[in-house]
């Protein structure tokens, strides 16, 4: 069936999980109204959480989670050697997500605290791109299924994908939300990459920056705004560090 004059390919897809909550791959089974069409556009040949079939012949690998142990490095390198295209799916895969916090604690002490005299093998948190080459990055905690669908459409049709270049604020305004700063809540919406539909400001939480920095963020203006609204540098830094997407950016560095 041709679509817009293009013959869609049905890529063989593998979905793989590493360290994380596996919430991103679960999004693939959501949005039930278009689930049938989504699954029909792909040939899913490896999806441990959803299916007992497991093939080592796939074109696209979706990676959920980050790397924290050596056996994961071996598994990830094997996947990279098979897949033509590797997609880092979610904040953990993209830049470590909340598990980036592990890199600021003493892992040996943590191991002793949790497991006593039977410590388990573990290591620092690494994003997927820190271990193998990544072709497409979809950040978000969790990823937005709408955005995954859009990217899959592009992959199936062989059309290049361009991520949004505006911050979360744009989508928040489209929802007619009152600005979180007006409500006295700290919000990273002005500097965080959009594409999520602003669920966190809409819910009342404010943006925590799970998708990382937007294109060319105005960090200086944001810092001045947040300080003027009475938030401390410590609060702003804690928020910037929360999902690992602003690594290296602090009030001191802005």
């Amino acid at each position: 069936m041709r679509y817009l004059g293009i013959e869609p390919v049905k890529p063989r897809v593998g979905i793989f999980d590493f360290s994380g909550c596996e919430g991103c791959q679960l999004q693939l089974l959501n949005k039930e109204e278009s689930l049938g069409a989504f699954l029909s556009a792909l040939e899913i040949v490896h999806f441990r959480e959803g299916s007992s079939e497991a093939s080592d012949d796939y074109d696209i690998a979706f990676i959920d989670g980050c790397v924290t142990r050596e056996d994961e490095v071996v598994r990830l390198k094997k996947i990279r050697s098979i897949a033509k295209l590797v997609v880092a799916m979610g904040s953990c895969a993209s830049f470590g997500g909340v598990l980036r916090h592990r890199n600021y604690i003493d892992l040996d002490a943590a191991n002793r605290e949790v497991y006593g005299d039977k410590p388990k093998e573990t290591g620092k948190t690494r994003a997927i791109h820190e271990v193998v080459k990544v072709d497409v990055t979809i950040p978000g905690c969790p990823v937005s299924k709408t955005q995954v669908e859009r990217i899959v459409q592009h992959l199936v049709l062989g059309v290049p994908f361009h991520d949004v270049v505006y911050p979360v604020c744009v989508e928040c305004k489209q929802k007619f939300n009152t600005c979180m700063f007006e409500k006295g809540t700290l919000c990273l919406g002005p500097i965080t990459r959009g594409g999520c539909g602003a669920p966190c400001p809409t819910g009342g939480l404010g943006c925590w920056g799970c998708r990382g920095a937007t294109v060319d963020p105005n960090l200086k203006e944001f810092k001045d705004l947040a300080l003027k609204r009475g938030f401390s540098e410590a609060e702003i830094d804690e928020r910037l560090a929360f999902f690992g997407g602003f690594e290296g950016i602090t009030c001191a560095s802005i």
Partner: peptide
């Protein structure tokens, strides 16, 4: 499964997070 150490990561975090 790989250990993640959430209980240790929680230390020092503000109650809102």
């Amino acid at each position: 499964e790989t250990p993640r150490f959430f209980e240790v990561m929680l230390k020092g975090k503000h109650y809102t997070s």
